[in-house]
Amino acid sequence: MNTFQLTCFLTVAETLSFVKAARQLNVTQPAVTHQIRSLEEELNAQLFKRTTRAVEITQEGLIFLNDAKNVLNIITLAKKRFEEPVGDERQFFSIGCHSHNEVHLLPGILRRMTESCPTLYPLFQVVPFQHLYQLLEEGTVDVVTAFREKEQKKETGIYRELALVRMTGILPASHPLAEKEALDRGDLLTQRLILLDPQRCPDSLNAVQHELTTGRTVSDLFMCSSVDVCLTLVKAGFGVAIQPDFPSLRDPALAYIPIEGVEPLSYGAYYKSVTGKPLLKLFLQLCRDNFPVQPKC
């Protein structure tokens, strides 16, 4: 995946025309078509429906739209770091996350960082999983906070665990099951399950979701694009959401009940090296001492 592919995708999405996109980009139509096809092959998803009369963006294309914009913004900001006047004293620190929900874990950490570095300028990059690790490899982000992947490739970098996060069933506080100390598989079989779209969550969470949904019918499941959507459906009474439990992010209107027999997930930070990176070193130190989830014993 490269910036030209993303630019072609966004231009076609805006114009809904390969001809107009090629004209705007000052390239040939076959060149735009080739870039879109290459991108679709890499993502293993169809981004556009093409006929002789019209071009329509698919549901997969709509989902990828914000991701593509975010990736291009990240690259643009990275370039601008070196275009600013010499007098710019901002100290940029780029944090990669897989979901906007996880951003809410970090205000306390960043507040403490500014005590040591008043010119700190945090940048958040919320992009898909594989692309985020690619940005870490390229040095576009300084650190990625994420759940540890069981089959993570070595080239992703160094992983430092910050917390073990238990899996919970989330339901309205008034729900009959909210009084239980833990939910078993039998409890979950009586409820519709609200899950994150497998393309929008880590493999470790996907594995838990797959285990808990084996044998369930499609009508028993809701697939959501974000944690916020999951919680909205929970509040509306559509079922029980299966989510990792970050106590500092709990909604007081909901109950978070541990699920029996499901191992906690490791949550931590991926990075390449702290050598010559004082802000990264400070961030990791503060996370170790102040991360808002009970640390591993």
Rank of each mutant, 00 (worst) to 15 (best):
S226H: 09
C297D: 14
F93D: 01
A45T: 02
D197P: 11
A236Y: 04
T114S: 07
A163I: 09
I95D: 02
P292F: 00
E14R: 14
V27H: 00
M1G: 10
A146W: 00
R166V: 14
L62A: 12
L284P: 03
Q5I: 05
R111H: 13
D228C: 10
I57V: 05
V71N: 01
E263P: 07
E42R: 10
Q209A: 13
I170T: 15
N290Y: 15
Y267Q: 04
T114R: 10
S226A: 05
L39W: 01
I75Q: 05
A173W: 14
V127A: 12
C117K: 08
I257S: 04
K296R: 13
F291P: 02
F4N: 13
L105V: 08
L195V: 04
T51Q: 10
Q35N: 09
L136T: 06
F238S: 13
F246N: 14
L249Q: 00
V71D: 02
A163T: 06
P198R: 10
F9T: 02
L279Y: 04
F92L: 14
L212M: 03
A182R: 11
S99A: 08
S204A: 06
S204W: 00
T58P: 09
E84W: 06
P172F: 06
L189P: 05
Y133H: 11
L105R: 04
P118H: 07
N290F: 12
R23Q: 15
G157L: 00
G96Y: 06
Y267V: 11
V141I: 12
H175W: 12
Q125T: 15
G87K: 09
K154V: 07
L106R: 08
C230D: 11
V234K: 03
F238G: 09
Q134H: 10
N66Q: 14
R53W: 01
L10V: 07
Y121V: 02
R216H: 03
H100T: 13
L193M: 03
N44H: 04
P198W: 03
F283M: 00
L10Y: 00
V12P: 10
E56R: 08
I75A: 01
Q191D: 11
L110N: 05
R53H: 01
L183R: 10
P264F: 00
A22I: 03
V32G: 04
